[in-house]
């Protein structure tokens, strides 16, 4: 493995991601696991893991991002997910545009300028509608595993309309549909549509600046990608590791700061 020069950690609501970059800012190592409520313990465990992989994380510059960023004591700087995602994606794809990041707890639309700077952004409002949690909760009711949801939804020829964007109300709606004998896959497809329409509204509120890029754990779901393309008539591009872009951006910022110092 090339020499690790900087680290980025993204303490998200659902998962925690750690990335390591070399002197050129190339992503050379990463680790991802479910978020532990004891962030400090989890970070300690990450440092042990790095030692096992032959490098000492404590000696390296590190930037933290995500909701739990302020709990990462080892990080020399805390930067928001907005800036980190923009930095990560820009470096991976090599251009600006509109980045849609769909995470477990929130979704963001970020307009990235020609020099990787954030020009504008919007985030979902206070509720979980338009986030990964919406699919997770509602699909849980249908007993479909998360990694199968997208494929199952796309396989449905029919689609039922879910009128509620609210996670709690949508769940009641699903229960009533099941009670009326509606098939699972058309409901799944309707759920995806509901989420996508929410995201599309957010993109439109900011104003789409092509190309359209996606990041975040939820975009691994193929139905999300396909339906966004359908709704906006715009092809989407994705980095190789969409879920790691926040942590990767954080590592790049750490690297840049250490070079500057």
């Amino acid at each position: 493995m090339e020499e690790v020069k900087a680290l980025g950690i993204d303490v998200g609501s659902t998962t925690v991601k750690l990335t390591a970059v070399d002197a050129q800012g190339k992503l050379i190592w990463h680790h991802l696991e479910g978020a532990d409520p004891r962030v400090e313990d989890q970070v300690d465990h990450f440092f042990n893991l790095m030692r096992e992989h032959g490098f000492d994380g404590k000696e390296l510059p590190m930037v933290a991002t995500g909701y739990g960023r302020n709990l990462v004591e080892q990080a020399e700087k805390k930067v928001t997910e907005i800036t980190c995602h923009a930095t990560g994606v820009y470096n991976q794809l090599g251009h600006g545009g509109t980045l849609v990041d769909i995470g477990g707890q929130d979704s963001k639309v970020i307009i990235i300028g020609e020099n990787s700077q954030v020009v504008d952004f919007a985030m979902n409002d206070k509720c979980a509608a338009g986030t990964g949690r919406f699919l997770e909760n509602t699909a849980g009711r249908l007993r479909v595993p998360l990694d199968r949801m997208g494929v199952e939804a796309l396989s449905a020829a029919e689609e039922v309309a879910i009128s509620s964007t609210c996670t709690v109300f949508a769940e009641s709606e699903i229960i009533s549909m099941i009670a009326h004998g509606v098939e699972v896959n058309p409901i799944l497809k309707g759920l995806h549509r509901s989420l996508i329409l929410r995201i599309v509204a957010m993109i439109r509120s900011v104003g789409l600046v092509p190309p359209l890029m996606l990041s975040g754990g939820v975009v691994k779901n193929p139905a999300i990608r396909e339906m966004i393309t359908q709704e906006l008539g715009e092809q989407v591009t994705m980095p190789e590791y969409p879920q790691l872009m926040g942590a990767y951006g954080a590592a790049l910022i750490a690297l840049k700061n250490s070079n500057r110092a």
Binding site: Y67, V79, T80, E81, I82, T83, D106, Q117, V118, V119, D120, F121, M123, K126
Partner: peptide, 21 residues
């Protein structure tokens, strides 16, 4: 009850970073 501190803080922080650019 119509205010979420964490969300307000993250939006403000991102906006501040944007102003610094």
């Amino acid at each position: 009850r119509a205010y979420a501190e964490e969300q307000v803080a993250s939006r403000l922080a991102a906006f501040m970073e944007m102003l610094e650019d």
